[in-house]
């Protein structure tokens, strides 16, 4: 459906915006390396089923997400390392890993390796933006491209919510993926403050600056 497709392309667009920002400004300043590593972990643990992915659409996106994230991490850790300031990127990711790990172990759909890792990836994704938002809060402002990146990334999961509602009514089984839906709503709530400032400032041509 349209929400799902727009969501996935928003996700892809966010990655292109981020790569464009890093390469055009030859800098990864303002980007949280910790959030990027968490996204890498999200992709690895979610796409363990990559070799068995039957849908070409999903397969292509999975390969694109994993490879582009690897490239972003390479750029941040090697090519543009001097522009990456660890003193601003100080969020304690062990809390996020603990949160995702605990929920994955307590409530997986099934106690299999794939299911536990899948649940872990869903919960981890829901909070993986926090180091980035924390960094933004510390610097108080962001380059336009960084703000566009975070907005597109947040829009992706937000668009999954109408997708789930649409699927619930349009598919005869009326299935609800409780883990994905709960985590997706949590993820979107975490972005809400950012979305508000993005809407009131950046979309009106102003700089992204915290009040």
């Amino acid at each position: 459906n349209i929400f799902r497709v727009l969501g996935d392309f928003s996700h892809l667009a966010s990655i292109f915006i981020l790569l464009h920002k890093i390469q055009q400004l030859k800098s990864c300043s303002g980007i949280s390396f910790k959030s990027q590593v968490l996204y890498m972990l999200v992709y690895i643990t979610r796409y363990l089923d990559l070799p068995w992915t039957s849908s070409p659409y999903n397969f292509i996106f999975k390969v694109l997400f994993i490879s582009s994230e690897l490239y972003i991490i390479y750029l941040m850790a090697r090519a543009y390392k001097p522009t990456n300031d660890p003193n601003l990127d100080t969020f304690h990711v062990e809390f996020l890993l603990g949160f995702a790990g605990l929920l994955a172990l307590l409530f997986p759909y099934k106690y299999t390796i794939l299911e536990v890792f899948w649940a872990f990836s869903i919960w981890l994704e829901s909070v993986a933006i926090l180091p980035q938002l924390f960094m933004l809060q510390r610097t108080g402002e962001a380059e336009a491209m960084t703000a566009h990146y975070i907005a597109a990334l947040g829009m992706y999961r937000a668009l999954y919510i109408p997708n789930w509602i649409y699927r619930y009514f349009s598919e005869p089984t009326h299935k609800v993926d409780t883990i994905a839906v709960t985590a997706g709503i949590l993820q979107t709530i975490l972005y809400s403050d950012f979305f508000w400032i993005y809407y009131t400032k950046v979309m009106r041509g102003e700089k992204f600056k915290l009040p």
Binding site: R4, D8, H11, D49, S55, N58, F61, K62, F65, Y109, K110, E115, W118, Y160, N163, K175, V176, D177, A180
Partner: peptide, 10 residues
């Protein structure tokens, strides 16, 4: 499988 949604999303 009952209870396990098909992982057809990203």
């Amino acid at each position: 499988e009952p209870g396990v949604p098909i992982k057809d999303e990203l």
